[in-house]
Design a protein around this nucleic acid. Structure first.
Length: 271
DNA sequence: CAGAATACCTGCGGGC
DNA sequence: TGCCCGCAGGTATTCT
């Protein structure tokens, strides 16, 4: 589910509720997520205070005195802050109980998400170390993308969804950004013109920013930290709209498969 | 090193 | 109504 705008929305939602809060207990009901939650997590975190809530790509980082909790929402993960005395939802795998009577609750039907703990610099963690630049910073610019594209002959869509190239761009926003940049998704990355790559940098930033403003895109599971859906699904030009008319030129949108992912585009607007 | 295939998991909608 | 199939906001790992 969650791509950068959704994770950013969750981060902003939980941050004011978690900062300076002390962790009293971790309850793990289902440890088998993408990676098994270490048994030591409760001891590692007990009496720790959350000092920072940040995001790196699609990872959420909760920093405490002694280390960092690394959370990934996978495809179907939801994080809620609610009173400790709540009824557990189906697929609610972990509760991080706070001293103020609230709990950070991790719900994830497909269990592609993860909760890890590291005492090293989280940016040096094996999962974060090789990530590409943040798309909403100046490190992600035309010069960078043009240079990176020269080494890749995979399709431009798979290229921008590769988190070693740039983080946070998943199936929804890759599809949308390519439409806005008028680039056909199957074009080999090393054959996209410099002008189009320059435009693509702009449209990726544009679509991610607008999606954040709209609290992300809810297709099915995704919810903000107060349990509400996002709003960006109403503003999608192409994702999920195969066989419907293009919002710009009325041509019927086509769908193909790239790397096992559904890929919608306008055969008229995107060459 | 780049790229393709594989694996992890549940729920849902469509076809029969 | 029920069963089977394919598909869904991800991505590390393994193999070529």
């Amino acid at each position: 589910m969650p791509e950068l705008p959704e994770v950013e929305t969750v981060s902003r939602g939980i941050r004011p509720l978690l900062l300076k809060q002390k962790i009293t207990q971790i309850i793990v009901r289902q440890p088998k997520l993408r990676w098994t939650i270490p048994r030591s997590l409760n001891n590692d975190l007990k009496q720790q205070t959350i000092q920072q809530v940040t995001r790196r790509g699609k990872y959420l980082l909760l920093a405490t005195e002694n280390g960092t909790i690394i959370i990934h929402l996978g495809m179907s993960g939801v994080l809620l802050v609610q009173p400790q005395q709540h009824t557990w939802a189906k697929h609610e795998h972990v509760n991080i109980i706070l001293a103020n009577g609230y709990a950070l609750c991790f719900i994830d039907p497909r269990r592609f998400g993860t909760i890890l703990w590291t005492t090293q610099d989280p940016q040096q963690h094996r999962l974060l170390k090789h990530l590409g630049p943040e798309p909403l910073t100046r490190d992600f610019n035309a010069r960078y993308l043009i240079n990176a594209a020269r080494r890749h002959k995979c399709t431009i869509k798979q290229f921008i969804m590769n988190n070693h190239i740039v983080v946070g761009v998943g199936n929804i926003y890759a599809t949308e950004a390519l439409f806005l940049a008028k680039i056909h998704p199957t074009t080999p990355a090393n054959q996209v013109s410099a002008a189009h790559l320059t435009k693509l940098v702009t449209t990726i930033k544009q679509v991610l920013k607008l999606a954040i403003k709209n609290s992300g895109t809810t297709i099915r599971d995704y919810a903000t930290s107060d349990g509400k859906p996002g709003n960006f699904q109403h503003r999608l030009y192409v994702y999920g709209r195969q066989n419907q008319p293009c919002k710009k030129c009325k041509t019927i949108l086509q769908a193909i498969r790239l790397g096992q992912r559904n890929t919608v585009f306008c055969p008229s607007c995107q060459k």
